[in-house]
């Protein structure tokens, strides 16, 4: 009897302690979510911030607009390519630089530098660096007889991908390096004694042990690349045409330039639903495998 009452007391105090957090989350997320839901079913505009109910009109407009699918396609493709390249590059760097960084850990800070620059500033920097006439890289390449037009139509997609990868590979590297450093030296030594060195040690011991960190990195980088905005907007404005219009740029233009706030919010909510579905599926897969 006393045991049961102790449990109940514990549960009650745990619930009481959760109340402030729930209130905070309710205020922070609940209210905006509710008001955005209303916006998505209304003809709200900057001139009429209340709007009137229009049913599913905004959702129909969003789903039947080919530009939304084009932007979604761009974002998905961009996220897959960037995440793959960033994680692959980070893994290679981790395995190459790990011995060096154990002796000189301060060098990690230098490798983190690109991540510390704001993405919008990164866009401005590359607008200058890659300019055909004033940019250092095209000028030197031309002097060597290899003229490349990085911002030309044929290369612009590769350029925006390269900028994203250059900026965010350090993030993947940092997480994976931390995971690599948690693997004890004794384990590697034991594997070596058993004859597992080089390739076998990396693929059968180190990588499986780094798997949780790898999943997190892939997850975070995918989400981050999927909602890319800043450097592309600064560099290309989403063009030429809609060639580099990501879903974030598309929503931004719907909202601020086209003044179709309801449709912009409807696209955002559709995107949220898609992301939630993906997250639930991904998490279930991870849990099942683990």
């Amino acid at each position: 009897m006393s045991y049961v009452s102790f449990e109940t007391k514990e549960q009650a105090s745990a619930r009481a302690l959760l109340v402030p957090l729930c209130l905070f989350l309710g205020a922070l997320l609940g209210f905006p979510t509710l008001i955005n839901l209303w916006y998505s079913f209304s003809d709200v505009s900057f001139q009429n911030m209340i709007g009137s109910f229009v049913g599913a009109e905004n959702y129909i407009a969003a789903l039947t607009n080919p530009k939304m699918w084009q932007a979604l396609g761009f974002s998905l493709q961009f996220a897959v390519i960037c995440t793959t390249l960033e994680v692959a590059a980070a893994l290679v760097l981790v395995f190459i630089l790990h011995p060096l960084l154990i002796k000189r850990p301060w060098m990690t800070a230098i490798l983190m530098l690109p991540m510390m620059v704001s993405p919008a500033l990164m866009g401005v920097m590359y607008r200058l660096i890659l300019n055909e006439f004033t940019g250092a890289i095209p000028v030197y390449l031309e002097m060597m007889g290899h003229a490349v037009n990085f911002l030309g139509r044929g290369n612009i997609y590769k350029t925006v991908v390269a900028i994203e990868v250059l900026q965010w590979t350090p993030f993947a590297f940092l997480i994976l390096l931390t995971a690599r450093q948690t693997i004890s030296y004794e384990l590697e030594e034991a594997a070596a004694v058993d004859g597992a060195t080089g390739f076998r040690s990396t693929f059968h011991i180190l990588l499986p042990m780094m798997k949780p960190a790898l999943v997190i990195v892939i997850f975070v980088r995918f989400i981050d690349s999927f909602r890319v905005f800043d450097h592309i907007y600064v560099l290309t404005g989403g063009g030429p045409g809609n060639l580099t219009t990501s879903i974030s740029i598309y929503i931004y233009k719907l909202f601020f330039v086209q003044n179709t706030l309801g449709e912009a919010v409807a696209v955002s909510i559709l995107l949220l639903l898609m992301s939630l579905t993906l997250i639930v599926v991904a998490m279930r897969l991870v849990v099942r495998r683990s």
Partner: peptide, 22 residues
């Protein structure tokens, strides 16, 4: 009130034409 949106739509489509996107 719609001028900015129209200009933006023109920019999307006409730059697309000039660069061979459409």
């Amino acid at each position: 009130a719609k001028a900015m949106g129209i200009y933006t739509n023109m920019a999307e489509n006409f730059t697309g034409y000039w660069t061979g996107e459409m």
